[in-house]
Structures are given as C-alpha cells and as structure tokens.
Design a binder for these strands. Structure first.
Lengths: 340, 340
DNA sequence: CTGAAAGCGCTTACAG
DNA sequence: CTGAAAGCGCTTACAG
C-alpha cells in the first residue's frame, strides 16, 4: 500500500505536463480540455490527444477551488434504515443513476443524526454544488438547509413552506384514481389507511380518497379512516379496525402499509381480493412476491430523480425561472383488486 | 436564488479573516484550528473562539488541495436496485452511519454502469481518500479499482484475489451452525439453496452446509442442492425441486431466496415449519412481516461497516500492518424453524 | 486565438 | 511558540 501511494504521487500527471508536452500554455490547455471557446481546432485536438495519452485526470479539488463548482451533489435521506424503507432505497438508487448520466457524483447524507462537524462543512461548504432533500427527511436540522446558502431541491412536498423548489409526484388526483378503481371493481365500502397527517403527501392522498367519493356521489365516512405512519407494522396494526368496520376495499397511502394490511388479512382469514380489495401507493412492493400482487399507484422514481437533478443544476447555474415540478404516477393493476 | 448565491459569496469567512481578527498569522490560525502542536494554549483558545463566533467553515476543496486529504470515502455498490437488494440497502445505510460518526462524507457509486468521465475522475483523483467496494459489485470495471492508486477495502470476499484487504462475515462455520440448528430441530433431510458459485461467499456457505453433515455423521446428498442467484425469484423457482425431493429442512444461502422458498411453499400447501423448516442468511427479512418469521444468520452490518472504514483509514494513513477482518454473525431463531 | 499572471483558500516545511 | 513564504493544481479575466 505504501508503495502504491508513492507511485500515485510520482505518476501524477498535471495540467502543466499536458501543456508542456503540447507546447501550449496552461490556460490554452485548460480551455482546450474544457471545451471552452478560444482555441484553434488543431490545438484543441492535439491537447486532448496528449492528455488522453498521458492519462491526465484533472485534480477535482483544484478544479473545485478554482471554479467554485464540484460536480457533486448531496442527497439527504432519512436515517431510518434503507432496508425497511423501500421508498428511500428506490429514490436513493434513482438519484444515483440519474447523477451518473450527468457525470455528477452523489454524496449521501443520513438525516437523523446530528451531523458531525466535517459533514456539516460538506453540506455548507464547497464540496457539493447543491442538495437534494427527501421530504421524508424534513424535520430537525434538515429544515435549516433550505435557508442556507446552498442550492436545494426538495423531493416531495414541504409540510409548511411554499418557497422551496420541489419535485413531487401528483398525490391527490392519483389517489382519487386509485379509489375510483376500487369502486369500478365493485367495492361499496372503501376504507383508507392514511400516513402521518403532518406530512403534505399523506394529506393530499387522503384528500384524493375524499375526492373520489365526492365524484362518485358516495358518502364519505370518517369512521373508515385508519391512521398509520407509513411503516409496515402500522398497516398490520390498523387494518383490523377496517375489517371490523366491514370494508370491502382499502386504499392505503403507501405500499408498505398495504402489505401490512394484507398480512393482517391473511392472519384473520380475510381473503384478498375476494373479500377485500386493496390498492397501495409508491409501487415499491412490485418485486416482493406477495400474493396476490398489489395494485399500486407507481411512482416513476427515475423521472422524479432526473427532474430533481435538472432543477438543481438550473438553480446552481443561476437561472431565475426555476419552477417546481409535478410528476404524474401511474396506476398499475395487480391481483389485489382483481374481480373475484 | 440569485441573491442567495450572492450572499454566499459576500458572507464567506475565510481563514484569513479568522487570523486577522485573532491577531495571528494564517499559519498559527491553521495550527490552532486543526489541533496541531506549536500554538500557545491561550492563542489556540482565542482563535477557536473567534472562528466559532465568525461561523468559520474551512473550504474543503482548499483543504483537500493543500493537504491531499478529503475526509470523504467512496462506496461502490451494485446497481441492481437497492429496493430489491436488502443486503445492499442495509450495507449502504450502515456505511453511511459509520461514516458520520467518524466525520467522513460518503460518495455513492453505482457499479453497473460504465462510469462517466467525471465519476471516473472522482474515483481515481483526489476527491475521495479511499474506496469501500461491496463484493457484490465485483466484476466489470470495478475490479480495476483494486489495482488503481486509490486505497480500497473490499466488503466481502473476492472470488479470486487474495491480495485485497477485506472485511467479511464468517460464512462457513456460521452456515454449518445454521444447518446444525435444523438437525437439532429434528430435520432428517435438509436441502440447500446456494447462491452463484462463482462468488466466494456462496461457496463458503455451501461448504458450511456440507461441513454440518460431516460433523453430524450424516450423508451429504448432492441431489439436495438447488442453485439460485441470491434473488428472491430464484428462491421461488428452485424451491419446488427440493419439496419434491422430500426435504424437511432447507438452508438458504440468503434471506431473499429463503423468502422466495417460503412463498413457493405457501403456494404448494407446504406448511412451515410443520412440514419444512427454513433457515436463511443475512438477517435482512426480519422486519418484513413474513409468516412465520424467518430464522436467519444475521450479519452485524454496523460492525462490518465500522471495521471496513477503520481499515480503510489505516491504509490511507499509510499503516503497513493492515489485515483483513472476519466478523462472526449470529443465528437468530424465528418461527420458521420452530418445533411443530 | 494565445499566454502571463493572479487567485481560489487552505497546509506545511522552514527559519526565526 | 510564531510568521513569511511557497505550494497544492486548477480556472479565468486580462492584455496582447
């Protein structure tokens, strides 16, 4: 290892080497390499060839220091274990993939813990160009980020603030569509498992549930609202009350609680979809081999991530017209709402 | 947003500001702030107080450029979606958490895609001090990383190379322990679902299965080996052959395939644990609300991640005695191996 | 189109 | 213990 590091130091090829070998100045070499105007085509070509040949890799720290840009973005996600948070895992992965296609690095920041000094520095000083913040992470020190000097884009909807640029999935109409689907499949009495109502997305999804009833001219029964916390266990725990209330359909505000409800159903001998049909939201349980497969409002994670990054880059570039975006999800039908 | 960025530029407080206000030189201020020797205690105290008061945040790019160290490590994980790879999600999260306690940043690198130019630079040039590589990501361009000039630690075991520093869970004896547990619970005919045998961990876990038979003086029947790929679907697909071979116990090399097998069992009316008992490996399905709960060899992800980071830091620090580490997992008993 | 020069904000021998 | 100076490796006005 020691010798490796020694090699590293001695083998390092810098812009000066490229410039010298190319017979041009450092500035010219820099312009050529960065595709900036003001270099004769043949010079540009020669510099690039020589750089390739030398295996030149610009030192990012130096670039960063000189230009003020790092080509690295940060991602703040909740620290609840990614393993038990399929939404967070899917989003993290989508951001990673979207970043790679734009030649950006991604720094991962777990939201729960108070960040240590260095990590705090990373957030607020230089190493990253901007920050993607999952709305799931909103709360505690995370909120302060929106007021810091760093560019931020929220993935999701902020529970209270309207002055932050965000990209979110369309929650209300998509939820209404899901509930309407239950009606169309013959459900007469549809219950709802809602997420924590201090979250804007949870509220919007509940609103969609209400809206579907209104549109269908059906009575809206507050008794059929069960309160979960988006965790699987909460779905298990609250589903019983809905079964007892005699529902024949359940709209769950996310897939995790829907899966929990299905587990509770299996335990009670409630058959799905025969006795009760279920729709979830997120599309995170598709590959989970649950039986029957879960009908769900599927989030296009890749599109959401790509859009969020593009908005962030626009803000970093100083564009003034950056607008929040809304992405429309798709209802994917599975066995959990099939006709009996 | 524009004004924000403007503020950022004007509000920026640098080491020079701290030094000037403190009435000392920049070098003295730097030494004081970084806890380096050669500063009078009262000066050190004053500098730190003033830095705090000014809200001084050292520019990481400048620090990095000057010192050659970034306090950021990279994590290379497979690009198979984190959502369907609980192992990857758990490890990613554990690394993030371990890094935060050491004041390190974590850069995320998805392994499948050929990395773009910039990301390639990040890997090999300056922005990170070292790289944690998940063995799951081994293959393609990832392997070249071990021969690059950057410090690397493998999480897992390399299929072929022995010259890489790694931290891995103990696979063989732990697997033997799992199979022995099945014997103790009364199983007479235990099948095995193995992972891809080009992977060292998959081989070691199979070896443990064989070893347990040897230790128990039981015949080892190659007919009872089913070949999966660590994915849930493969567990579903190959479990049938084991059921048909009349097994009353299954050791699955990971939890995902075990859950798949349980799903297949439910489909065929095979009762667990009454007809067949199952043990998995990883401990990633604990919170999944499967019924019955899955007995599993649980990996201590946090310890693995912490150890890996500490080894990496030791390599970066130039220590010569860095040894690979093996972490012993724990058998956690669930309902899937309960006595009928 | 081209190059000399200044500068990004730190750290680190080196000489007092 | 302290400070002046050089240097990390780039980018970017600026003047030709």
């Amino acid at each position: 290892m020691d010798s490796q590091r020694g090699q590293q130091a001695s083998e390092r090829v810098t812009l000066d080497d490229v410039a010298r070998l190319s017979g041009v100045s450092r500035s010219a070499a820099s312009r050529a390499l960065n595709n900036r105007p003001g270099v004769r085509p043949d010079v540009r070509e020669r510099v690039n060839r020589i750089a390739d040949h030398l295996g030149f890799r610009p030192n990012r720290a130096a670039q960063n220091l000189a230009s003020g840009l790092s080509s690295v973005i940060g991602l703040v996600i909740p620290s609840s274990d990614l393993r038990v948070d399929p939404y967070g895992a899917a989003m993290t992965h989508a951001v990673g993939r979207a970043a790679i296609t734009r030649d950006l690095g991604v720094m991962l920041h777990l939201a729960h813990d108070e960040p240590g000094a260095t990590v705090h520095h990373i957030l607020s000083d230089g190493l990253i160009d901007g920050l993607l913040i999952s709305s799931v992470a909103v709360g505690s020190w995370v909120d302060g980020l929106f007021d810091s000097s760093i560019a931020t884009v929220l993935i999701g909807t902020h529970p209270t603030r309207t002055d932050v640029v965000s990209v979110d999935v369309e929650n209300r109409d998509a939820s209404a569509m899901a509930v309407t689907h239950l009606f169309e499949q013959g459900c007469e009495r549809v219950g709802c498992i809602v997420g924590p109502l201090d979250r804007a997305d949870a509220r919007a999804r509940l609103e969609g549930y209400r809206l579907a009833h209104e549109q269908a001219g059906r009575p809206y029964d507050p008794q059929l609202i069960a309160h979960g916390n988006f965790g699987r266990l909460s779905g298990v725990n609250v589903a019983g009350s809905l079964f007892e209330a005699g529902v024949d359909g359940i709209y769950s505000s996310n897939d995790e609680m829907a899966v929990g409800a299905m587990w509770a159903a299996a335990h009670r001998g409630v058959r799905i979809p025969d006795d009760v049909k279920i729709v979830g939201f997120d599309g995170t349980s598709i590959d989970e081999f649950i039986e029957p497969s879960l009908t769900s409002v599927v989030q296009p994670f890749d599109r959401i991530a790509s859009t969020a990054i593009d908005l962030l880059l626009a803000i970093v570039a100083g564009r003034a017209d950056v607008q929040s975006a809304t992405i429309v999800p798709e209802l994917v039908k599975g066995g959990s709402t099939a006709l009996a």
